[in-house]
Design a protein around this nucleic acid. Structure first.
Length: 481
RNA sequence: GCUCCCAUCGUCUAGCCCGGUCUAGGACAUCGCCUUUUCACGGCGGUAACAGGGGUUCGAAUCCCCUUGGGAGUACCA
């Protein structure tokens, strides 16, 4: 096992988001590609919004996608302790205390109103909206410590060094943070919980995280984290800030863009491999420019070098296409068992294995989802009362069509078997062609209309032998009327 | 506002790091044609992009600067 240790660190404040799934996938693939370890850490320090139920749902969705972690709350490595931040509070406090002792952090008793006023004042004066309270001056620290010793609740603020920082990001390259970018920031809230930019660093450091692969929305935050690493004298991991997903309006992908949580796609029976495949296409590219692949195909070739640096627009059309391609790659037995899990597949399930195979071979050309199979079976095979559409009316208007219909109705009456064979159909076709002198379009469209009640569809020679004769009889009878 | 990041077809992208092989390649979508004596299959093809301006160079999609545009951050959220 290599020294590569990566993590996905979601907040359990909602369902697993498409964007979250994408970063999780990239971390997972990088671990696989390097023989490293993929860690799941739960960042539940926002008490108001965090919810254990969401944690469970997110983990379920990751499992569904086939993104499995090596370490996590359910698979702890004793060396690294617990994997929920809410269970590591003593650790954060311990390091915060160290920072205070070294003068790199201080207690801050400012109220919300004072903070607001500070910001408003800075805005008016055109200065940087940074903390300028009295508590940052060491002259007040003894007083602060006494108040804390007396049991007063207080936030702990990190004393941001006035200097610029540089980051060599694996995706963005060299990033320079000017020295006035951030002011002193809170690391421990007055309710005793740590803030993201602080506990994230403590955990990444303590969990020996080697590569931080995350969304670009964290790129600006990173300077705060760099400061903490420096104050702690900790070794820096590599960073890779992946560009964000955007919607059709080019804004950060969010709920108002429609289906953005993974569970929605799961409910609509998208194939998990297709989801992963498509997510890889957004912001990462296959070295051989392949579009369709499995996660496991990437285990040997996934690399941080092939990320694009600009936001990618999430496009449902292409996702659907990818899903269809994965559907076509499935073996017939696998596909059949997936289809039988869909609702309304009673008819399908009752057929013979030969029928199922032929049906799947025929319909998978037209299907994008497994849910399309029952729909197609209902529409193409079981529907006894096809709708009289405009194209169908046109075909009915041809002078040869009524003759074809009455001929076929007559022939159908003589059929006693439950299915027609391809050979029997060919005899009828031959008759219409030779004895009735109908050929080409009127022939095929006429017979199709008579037997299917549609103006288009799969090849008749494959479709008709799958359709019950009783259904064919009803359709013809309806058209004759 | 300030700061950071980014910029190739409508969309996802290859190419950029290491300038010539790029009259810029692929995929989705779209359009057209062909074939299957029909059509929703299949095959072939078309439309369509280096944001603009300067510079460096014999030569720039590729390197530098500016402008414009887009994204993100600016919390006791993550």
């Amino acid at each position: 096992m290599s020294n590569v240790r990566v993590r996905f660190a979601p907040s359990p404040t909602g369902y697993l988001h498409i964007g979250g799934a994408r970063t999780a996938l990239y971390n997972y693939l990088y671990a696989k590609a390097t023989g490293g370890t993929f860690i799941l850490r739960i960042e539940d320090t926002d008490l108001e919004r965090s919810n254990a139920e969401y944690e469970k749902l997110q983990i379920d969705d990751l499992k569904w996608l086939g993104i499995h972690h090596d370490e996590g709350p359910d698979k702890p490595n004793p060396k690294y302790g617990l994997y929920r931040q809410s269970e590591r509070l003593d650790i954060y406090m311990k390091y915060a205390q160290q920072l205070i002792d070294k003068g790199q952090a201080y207690y801050d008793f400012c109220t919300e109103e004072e903070l607001e006023a500070m910001k408003a004042k800075a805005e008016v004066e055109g200065g940087d909206p940074h903390y300028s309270g009295k508590w940052r001056e060491s002259a007040h620290w003894d007083e602060a410590k006494k108040r804390v010793a007396a049991g007063e609740k207080t936030a702990i603020r990190f004393k941001a060094p006035k200097k610029s920082f540089e980051l060599n990001d694996k995706v963005k390259g060299k990033v320079v943070y000017p020295d006035n970018m951030v002011g002193d920031f809170v690391i421990m809230r007055s309710n005793g919980l740590p803030t993201y930019n602080y506990c994230c660093v403590i955990d990444d450091m303590l969990m020996d995280i080697s590569h931080v692969i995350r969304g670009e929305d964290h790129l600006n935050n990173t300077v705060r984290q760099l400061m903490i690493y420096e104050a702690l004298g900790a070794k820096l991991p590599e960073f890779a800030h992946v560009s964000l997903l955007i919607g059709h309006d080019r804004q950060k992908l969010s709920k108002r863009h429609g289906a953005t949580s993974v569970n929605l796609y799961r409910n609509e029976h998208y194939l998990p491999e297709a989801m992963c495949n498509y997510l890889c296409l957004l912001g990462w590219s296959h070295p051989d420019e392949k579009d369709i692949f499995e996660k496991s195909d990437l285990f040997s070739i996934f690399s941080l070098e092939r990320f694009s640096a600009h936001p990618a627009m999430y496009d449902l059309e292409k996702l659907k296409w990818v899903n269809g391609e994965h559907l076509k790659k499935l073996s017939n037995p696998d596909l059949i068992s997936l289809i039988e899990k869909e609702p309304e597949t009673d008819y399908f399930s009752k057929q013979t294995p030969e029928w199922k195979n032929a049906c799947v071979d025929l319909l998978k050309k037209y299907a994008v989802f497994t849910t399309d199979f029952p729909k197609l079976v209902n529409e193409l095979i079981l529907n006894e009362n096809p709708e009289m559409t405009d194209p169908l009316k046109e075909i009915m208007g041809w002078e040869t069509t009524p003759k074809i219909i009455s001929y076929i109705a007559g022939e159908l009456d003589k059929v006693n078997s439950s299915y027609l064979t391809e050979a029997e159909l060919n005899v009828w076709m031959d008759h219409v062609k030779k004895d009735m002198a109908v050929k080409g379009k009127p022939l095929f469209q006429g017979v199709r209309a008579a037997l299917t009640g549609h103006d288009h569809g799969p090849d008749l020679k494959f479709l008709i032998p799958l359709t019950p004769v009783t259904v064919l009889k009803k359709r013809v009878a309806q058209l004759k009327a």
